[in-house]
Lab assay of single mutants.
Amino acid sequence: NKASVVANQLIPINTALTLIMMKAEVVTPMGIPAEEIPKLVGMQVNRAVPLGTTLMPDMVKNYE
């Protein structure tokens, strides 16, 4: 099973992601793959992301 990106803390709306906000975890359903973490740094979330939430592509602005 591949790990996904999971919020390590509450991430407020429009916050630019940093490494300490994210962790890799095997979850179902899968979200953004953990190997994308370096690419996510500096990208903004378009909603508040609660602690423990799996990051999905539609939660990150301009994620492709």
Rank of each mutant, 00 (worst) to 15 (best):
N46A: 11
T53S: 14
I11V: 13
E35S: 08
L40N: 01
M21A: 06
A48F: 05
L51S: 07
R47C: 10
E64S: 13
N62L: 08
M56L: 10
V26T: 02
K61E: 12
A3L: 11
S4T: 11
S4K: 02
L55E: 00
M21T: 11
G52Y: 05
A24M: 10
A24E: 14
I11H: 01
I11S: 01
Y63T: 04
N46I: 09
R47M: 05
T18D: 07
V6L: 13
E36V: 08
A7P: 01
P29M: 06
Q9S: 12
M22Y: 01
T53M: 14
V5Y: 01
M30Q: 10
Q9F: 09
P50E: 14
L55G: 00
V26S: 15
N8P: 03
L40A: 01
N62E: 12
Q9A: 07
V27L: 10
N14A: 11
E64H: 09
K2M: 15
E64P: 14
M56Q: 07
V6R: 06
A24C: 13
I20V: 12
T53C: 07
P38Q: 06
S4F: 03
I32Y: 03
K2F: 15
N8H: 14
A16F: 05
V26L: 11
L17S: 00
L40R: 00
E25G: 09
G42T: 03
A24N: 08
S4Q: 03
N46Q: 13
L17N: 00
E64D: 13
Q44V: 14
K39N: 06
L51W: 11
K39V: 07
V6K: 08
V41S: 08
M30S: 12
A3M: 05
V6F: 03
P12A: 06
N14V: 12
S4W: 02
A3W: 02
E64V: 12
I37M: 13
I20K: 07
T28I: 05
P50L: 11
E25W: 05
E36A: 08
A7K: 01
N8M: 15
V5C: 07
A7V: 08
V5K: 00
M43N: 12
N14G: 08
N46L: 11
L19H: 10
I20Y: 08
G52R: 06
L51C: 13
N62W: 03
I32K: 00
P12G: 06
P29I: 12
I32R: 00
E25R: 06
S4E: 00
N46G: 12
D58P: 09
R47L: 09
M21I: 08
T53R: 08
M43W: 10
A34T: 06
V26D: 15
M56E: 08
M22K: 00
I20W: 09
V6Y: 06
G42D: 06
T18C: 12
A24V: 09
M59K: 02
V27Y: 03
I37N: 02
L19A: 12
A3H: 06
L55H: 00
P57V: 10
K23T: 12
K2V: 15
D58E: 07
L55C: 02
A3Y: 04
E35R: 02
E36K: 10
P57I: 14
K39H: 12
E36Q: 11
M43C: 08
G31V: 03
T15R: 07
T18S: 10
K2R: 03
A34Q: 06
N1K: 06
L40W: 02
E35F: 03
N46Y: 05
M43Y: 03
M30W: 03
S4G: 13
Y63I: 03
I11E: 00
K61I: 09
L19G: 08
G31P: 00
A3C: 15
A16Q: 08
I11A: 01
S4M: 02
V27R: 06
A24Y: 12
P12M: 08
L40T: 02
T54P: 05
M43G: 09
E64M: 09
E36P: 00
K23A: 08
K39P: 13
L40H: 01
M56A: 07
E25I: 04
M21L: 10
N1D: 15
K23P: 01
A7I: 04
L19F: 04
P29K: 11
N8R: 14
T54H: 03
P57E: 09
S4I: 02
L19K: 08
T18A: 11
N46H: 11
V26A: 13
G52P: 01
V60Y: 02
V6D: 00
G52N: 12
A48T: 11
T28D: 15
I20M: 06
Q9G: 13
T54A: 08
